[in-house]
Nucleic acid binder design. Sequence first.
DNA 1: TTGATAATGAAAATCATTTTCAATATAATA
DNA 2: TATTATATTGAAAATGATTTTCATTATCAA
Lengths: 161, 161
Amino acid sequence: MRNRMCGPWWENRLNDAGFRLTNPRELVMSILRNTDKHLSAEDVYVKALAVNPSIGLTTVYRSLDLFTQIGVVQRFDFGDGKARYELNRNPLSKGHHHHLVCMRCKSIIDYNDFMQEEVELMKKTEKALSKKHHFKIMHHTIHFYGLCNECQHAEQKMIDY
Amino acid sequence: MRNRMCGPWWENRLNDAGFRLTNPRELVMSILRNTDKHLSAEDVYVKALAVNPSIGLTTVYRSLDLFTQIGVVQRFDFGDGKARYELNRNPLSKGHHHHLVCMRCKSIIDYNDFMQEEVELMKKTEKALSKKHHFKIMHHTIHFYGLCNECQHAEQKMIDY
DNA sequence: TTGATAATGAAAATCATTTTCAATATAATA
DNA sequence: TATTATATTGAAAATGATTTTCATTATCAA
Ligand SMILES: [Mn+2]
Ligand SMILES: [Mn+2]
Ligand SMILES: [Zn+2]
Ligand SMILES: [Zn+2]
């Protein structure tokens, strides 16, 4: 009775990759689906505890890694020492967006301007790169790095070495 | 006699940000300039030792961080547990490129196809985003994630949990 | 059911990166 | 140039996010 080809796409992805749909995994995924933040493993763990007080941090880590490996979740390093995770949305979907990253305070801004043109270029690039490098592309990221409004006007010297 | 406004751009960047040009920093930079790999701090350290046997790993970390902060170096997290660094080249320059990242074996491919069109879109996007979010953009990254040639044909189940 | 395998959670271990701190180098200026 | 203030360095110790181990539990196939 497995592989009924129903449920959300990430469940199918799990099945196809040969993994089971478990309570902890479902919980972790639901947390990612219900936020627009960029959560760390610890962040997810804290939220998970509220629903399932017996879940382990280890399992959260494992779930996030697994989701990242099968491509349903994106893992980011914004430079603040801990990985952050975000649901990976289809480039054609509403939720797809890119990032502005402040090099100083590490704050993140999601944006989705020019998505139409961006998707055009990406599709084209994807197609060419897939062929040229025999690479099966699953998703992409675009990050702009710079200084946020506050940090532009903050003290010049930002670091002590 | 400072700020003679000569030397490579990253030296000026250092000065402008209020930092000194030191031997260790010069060495770290020269290592980054003379490779096309994506080196970890440890990688840089090993190469640096060959030139200056008294340099410390700590200093390498500090130099890489500093360069990253002032925008002359890019720091990446390709998912293999250690940060990797690469010289940050001007989008209009020859060396500017983007990345294909294998989600399974973490191998990286640099590519620079469609750079013309890409740069067009980026400039346009940059301009709009700068205004809209009062963000001073210094550089950007584009990453495509997927499976490299080998990994597409490798075993299905890639992880044990 | 039963047996085989996958997934979980607690505790311990790892290890890349950061912090501390005393020593050294550099720049400003008297 | 000599003096003083400040920036940078390297070794050692600490940190802390992530991973590993391992015994237990849940789930699947037959
Ligand atoms: Mn986002
Ligand atoms: Mn590269
Ligand atoms: Zn900022
Ligand atoms: Zn691969």
